[in-house]
Simulated scan of single mutants.
Amino acid sequence: MRLKCIVIDDEPLALQLIRNYVSKFPALELVKTFEDAISGGEYLAKHDIDLLFVDVNMPDITGVDLVRSLEKKPIIIFTTAYKNYAFESYELQALDYLLKPIDLKRFSAAVEKAVDYYKYKNLPDEPREDESIYVYSEYRMIKILLKDIEYIESMADYIIIHLAGSDKPVMSLMTLKKVLEKLPKEKFIRVHRSFIVSVNKIRSLHNRKIRLETIELPIGDAYNDVVNQYLKSS
Rank of each mutant, 00 (worst) to 15 (best):
I38V: 15
I38Q: 13
I38T: 15
S39Q: 15
S39C: 11
G40F: 09
G41Y: 03
E42K: 07
Y43L: 05
Y43P: 01
Y43M: 00
L44F: 00
L44C: 08
A45G: 04
A45F: 02
H47G: 04
H47W: 01
D48M: 05
I49K: 06
I49Y: 06
L51M: 02
L52F: 03
F53G: 05
V54R: 06
V54P: 02
V54K: 00
V54I: 13
D55L: 04
V56L: 01
V56W: 06
V56I: 15
N57V: 14
N57S: 15
M58H: 10
M58I: 03
P59S: 08
P59Q: 07
I61S: 07
T62W: 10
G63K: 08
D65T: 13
D65G: 14
D65M: 13
L66F: 07
R68L: 02
L70E: 11
L70W: 02
E71L: 01
E71H: 11
K73D: 06
P74N: 00
P74F: 09
P74L: 03
I75L: 12
I75R: 03
I77M: 04
I77G: 09
F78S: 08
T79A: 09
T79Y: 12
T79R: 11
T80F: 04
A81I: 09
Y82D: 11
K83N: 11
K83H: 04
N84I: 01
N84M: 09
Y85A: 13
S89Y: 04
L92S: 12
L92V: 11
L95M: 06
D96T: 14
D96F: 13
D96C: 13
Y97A: 07
L98Q: 02
L99Y: 05
L99H: 05
K100F: 03
I102C: 00
L104Y: 12
L104E: 15
K105D: 15
K105A: 15
R106W: 13
R106E: 15
R106H: 13
R106V: 15
R106S: 07
S108N: 01
E112I: 08
K113Y: 08
K113V: 10
K113C: 04
A114L: 03
V115P: 11
V115Y: 14
D116V: 03
D116F: 08
Y118A: 09
Y118V: 07
Y118C: 00
K119V: 08
K119G: 14
L123F: 12
L123V: 00
D125A: 10
E126N: 10
P127G: 08
P127A: 01
R128K: 15
E129L: 10
E131M: 14
E131T: 13
E131A: 15
Y134I: 10
V135A: 06
Y136L: 09
S137R: 12
E138D: 15
R140C: 15
R140G: 14
M141I: 06
K143M: 11
K143D: 02
L145A: 14
L146N: 02
D148W: 06
I149T: 09
E150R: 04
Y151Q: 06
I152H: 11
S154R: 09
M155R: 12
A156L: 11
A156S: 14
A156V: 01
A156H: 12
D157W: 05
D157V: 00
D157S: 07
I159P: 02
I159L: 12
H162S: 03
L163H: 01
L163D: 01
A164M: 14
